[in-house]
């Protein structure tokens, strides 16, 4: 036991965990800054500028402000569930980072069932929303929770089905191996990324991912004109911050998963000295995820919200059959190519 703890391998693992946990936390904090800046620019405003240069210290100020805010627990709320809901929401959101490969060696653990592990973990995230809405014992949170959880599970289905096409090509559930399987080239010059082999699946994935994370144009949980702030209407202080953190973490997770499944993960041009060579894959990975996040933020700034019935209709009557058809077609082509 003691030897195991002092083992250099274990220390390396601990270092990885700390680096990834800290990195993710910092990234999530600055994501809020990035989002505010980008949206402000789209709307011809400067955005946060007061705290630090370019408002760079804004996330820290926000965090401190959250800390000192009053922690309101409404009367008639089911106190235990009300307090537990943000944690229930946050833990799964953070836990999925433990299997994401940020680089060839920067991965905490490569599970044989890594992809399914992420799906399992994200499917638990629904409970944070449901409990938060139900335990508040207030009307808007309840309605918001029902709506957004129904939306999440509907789009989780097409999200799950869209990656089956990729699996038919990669034949593995391990995330690192999926990335490795995309490292050859097509026709000699196009990288063999799954986005070129599975464009339909990619489209379905991106749409479902936006809906899955409750972001505009699918943010019915908190369509402020009708439901105030959705399931977290009653939440304040750090509990509210935890819900926000979970939302951003989910955003990063689905973006990272898109990068792994469709955009070749950490693959990218390699050059320079050896030290740079080890850092480059992570840089490419972060850049690809960054493009996704930027797309998310741009969507929020520019696209109007849909109507709830349109959303459900779109998910069930268009995306689901589309992803099923994609699976059938892909499997037929793979089978013919194999035999």
């Amino acid at each position: 036991m003691i030897e195991y703890l002092m083992d250099s391998e274990f220390l390396l693992l601990l270092l990885k965990i700390i680096v990834i946990f800290g990195g993710v936390m910092g990234a999530l904090a600055y994501l809020t800054w990035l989002e505010r800046k980008v949206i402000a620019r789209v709307q011809m405003r400067p955005g946060p500028t007061r705290v630090g240069p370019f408002g760079l210290l804004q996330p820290i100020a926000d965090g401190l402000k959250f800390l000192f805010k009053e922690d309101v627990i409404p009367t008639n709320a089911n106190t235990f569930l009300y307090v537990a809901a943000p944690v229930v929401s946050l833990i799964p959101a953070l836990l999925s980072f433990s299997v994401i490969p940020f680089g060839p060696s920067l991965q905490i653990t490569d599970l044989g069932v890594g992809l399914l592990f992420i799906f399992a973990i994200t499917s638990l995230g629904v409970y944070g929303i449901v409990l938060g809405g139900w335990s508040s014992n207030s009307k808007y949170p309840l309605m918001g929770a029902m709506r957004s959880s129904a939306q999440m599970i509907s789009y989780e289905l097409s999200l799950t089905l869209s990656v089956v096409g990729v699996l038919l090509i990669a034949n593995t559930l391990s995330l690192a191996q999926i990335v490795v399987s995309q490292q050859r080239t097509l026709l000699g010059f196009i990288p063999r990324w799954n986005i070129f082999l599975q464009p339909v699946a990619f489209l379905v994935y991106v749409i479902s991912a936006v809906a899955e994370t409750n972001r505009l144009p699918f943010d019915f949980a908190e369509s402020e004109q009708e439901l105030v702030a959705g399931w977290h209407t009653e939440y304040s202080s750090l509990k509210f911050a935890m819900f926000m953190l979970a939302e951003y973490a989910n955003m990063v997770t689905v973006s990272a998963l898109a990068t792994i499944m469709f955009l070749g993960g950490w693959a990218g041009p390699m050059f320079g000295p050896a030290l740079l060579q080890t850092a480059l894959p992570t840089v490419w990975f972060v850049l690809k995820v960054g493009v996704f996040i930027f797309f998310y933020v741009l969507m929020r700034a520019t696209v109007p919200r849909l109507r709830y019935d349109q959303l459900m209709k779109f998910g069930w009557k268009f995306l689901l059959p589309l992803s099923l058809a994609n699976i059938v077609l892909t499997s037929l082509i793979v089978a013919i190519a194999a035999s």
């Binding site: 693992l13 009053e70 946050l90 599970l111 509990k239």
Partner: peptide, 30 residues
């Protein structure tokens, strides 16, 4: 392969609990 996930879970849960306790301790209450 699963042991690191347990460690990560403890870390995430600890973060959540510490946040709850901190906001209980530092938040004003009126």
């Amino acid at each position: 392969n699963w042991a690191p996930i347990l460690i990560f879970f403890i870390l995430a849960a600890g973060f959540g609990l510490v946040s709850l306790i901190m906001s209980y301790l530092f938040g004003v209450r009126k």
